[in-house]
Nucleic acid binder design. Structure first.
Lengths: 107, 107
DNA sequence: TCACAGGTTCGATGATCATCGAACTCGTGC
DNA sequence: GCACGAGTTCGATGATCATCGAACCTGTGA
């Protein structure tokens, strides 16, 4: 791969259609992941801190669904993989959606 | 049944938890139903006008899911059953959620 | 170089849910 | 009363998807 890839290009990803976004957060496990991400500083959390009581492979599957819908992105901090909630990107495309959902979670 | 039931009591129904609401609108068929309801005058539409290409029983199942989540309510107009989108009730509990989703549907 | 920890991918299994047809209910009108 | 149209309920079937274990990849640090 070329070493000319700027960091920004990696981060740029499309937020999927509403349908896809809704299905992504309609799952209890994934919704909990989003909740923890939203509560974290910088919206960033180590993968293993996003779940409990499920297997690694299951968690990884949910990460993928969240990422493909554009809700989260993968990034590396000191070599460790992390997940980051793309709050502003989602907010631009669907204003108020995520905020309202997150707000409703810690009622 | 007693004839003392005021009309208001029938209409009063709780909007379900976010989880339930999200799952309700995450389905393609139900999302289309919501879209048609939102576009209709008075947010009210005859049941048969909310779908095509699926059986009556399937449609009725989706009506039930929407109703139980608090998104819609059943009402009778000249003897004919109708569905009504409870836009304001949902908006009170989850501000901006439905509006944003509906807005995104007719992009 | 090797071992190890943390995520990912791959198939297979199981549960959940959308779909359907048939029987039932409720209103309307003949 | 009966027939009819429109929704609902009920079981059964099928597809979708969450879950898991095992193998694989990719860093880090002996």
């Amino acid at each position: 791969m070329p070493d000319t890839t700027p960091e920004e290009l990696v981060a740029v990803a499309e937020v999927g259609p509403v349908q896809e976004v809704l299905q992504a957060i309609a799952d209890p496990v994934r919704l909990e992941m989003v909740r923890r991400l939203a509560a974290a500083p910088d919206l960033t959390v180590r993968c293993s801190a996003l779940y409990d009581d499920i297997g690694k492979s299951t968690a990884s599957h949910h990460f993928k669904v969240l990422r493909e819908s554009g809700l989260t992105e993968r990034l590396s901090i000191e070599g460790q993989p992390h997940q980051r909630l793309r709050l502003s990107a989602v907010g631009e495309r669907y204003p108020g959606l995520l905020d309202t959902v997150i707000q409703a979670l810690d009622d």
